[in-house]
């Protein structure tokens, strides 16, 4: 069990806690291969998926994870416009609490919202992505996937490419991989590298070829096409030419390099189809492992003596 109520970010987790989650996830992965994909561990527990941003993959993954643990999972999708009707976040939190859930999984476009909710609530809160802050379950499943394939994290060089400034996946992975002993480099145009990112323990490059050459793991981030209007890059064409991962750039990579992407991918923008579908790509393993990691999180937060 984890000695904490909430999972709000990787930054606050210790290496031992991450290792506990990874080993628990490994034991739960087998459940999803059974004919009857269900264990009774969390029977009678209630999980609310509270999503203020559209999400298919993450929400479904949390829902399946909860159900395979026999918890009752309820999905609430709130559009950003309907919450502007005057209810404060605190009121929303207290109303949900009044229905006695055991865990609230929250995704929100505003950084810090899961922390604020956790402060108002007695039940557990899992951050399923808050603004550009953290997406801890994503980083945990990424680390799990890399460790599963390469057998270790310690000493690896992980290169994260894309819009680092707006990426919660990047932040959580910088925290996670560095805590586990890997070296992390972030790569992207200067308009997408936030100031002071080095203080999280990574190094920065704007030059893709060199970064790829030296990588054991390349993580491509999804480009938000609408950001083009904010002048972060002049055109998709130029972005793709400079920072898209294609077979040409990949030729310079080490033998055995693996490629991750948190999805959904923009084929032909940040990643070319032949790379996304190639043998080095673990993109679908990530999705499979996401369920196991989230089962582990539910178990470690709800499965103990907090009855």
């Amino acid at each position: 069990m984890l000695d904490r109520k909430d999972i709000l970010g990787i930054e606050e987790l210790g290496r031992d806690e991450i290792e506990t989650i990874l080993s628990t996830a490994a034991s739960f992965k087998e459940v999803s291969t059974r004919e009857i994909k269900k264990v009774p561990t969390l029977r009678g527990k209630t999980v609310i998926n509270l999503f203020y941003e559209p999400s298919t993959r993450t929400r479904t993954s949390f829902e399946i994870a909860a159900k395979r643990m026999s918890a009752d999972a309820i999905n609430i999708s709130v559009s950003a416009s309907s919450i502007k009707k005057g209810e404060t976040l605190k009121d929303t939190a207290l109303n949900l609490e009044a229905m006695a859930p055991d865990c609230i999984v929250v995704r929100h476009g505003s950084a810090g919202t899961p922390r604020m909710l956790a402060g108002y609530l007695d039940c557990s809160v899992i951050n399923a992505g808050d603004g550009a802050h953290e997406h801890p379950s994503q980083a945990l499943l990424d680390i799990f996937t890399v460790k599963e394939r390469l057998g270790r994290i310690e000493g690896l060089h992980v290169v994260i490419v894309g819009d680092i400034a707006h990426s919660r996946v990047a932040r959580s992975n910088i925290h996670g991989f560095t805590k586990m002993g890997a070296r992390v480099t972030v790569c992207g145009p200067p308009t997408m590298i936030p100031p002071g990112i080095e203080s999280l323990g990574c190094s920065v490059t704007h030059e893709m070829e060199g970064a790829v050459e030296d990588a054991d793991v390349i993580m491509m981030l999804r480009i938000q096409l609408e950001r083009q209007t904010k002048a972060l890059f002049p055109s998709i064409r130029e972005y793709s030419r400079l920072y898209g991962l294609d077979a040409g750039k990949l030729k310079r990579a080490k033998e055995g390099v693996i490629i991750l992407h948190p999805g959904p991918i923009n084929r032909g923008v940040e990643i070319s189809p032949e790379v996304a579908d190639g043998p080095w790509s673990l993109i679908l393993d990530q999705v499979t492992n996401g369920v196991a990691v989230r089962m582990a999180l539910f178990y470690l937060l709800l499965g103990g003596a907090r009855e």
Partner: peptide, 13 residues
């Protein structure tokens, strides 16, 4: 404020 703390928090600076 834009800086290392805003980057850490994921808030716009």
């Amino acid at each position: 404020n834009e800086g290392a703390v805003s980057t850490r928090l994921g808030l716009k600076g």
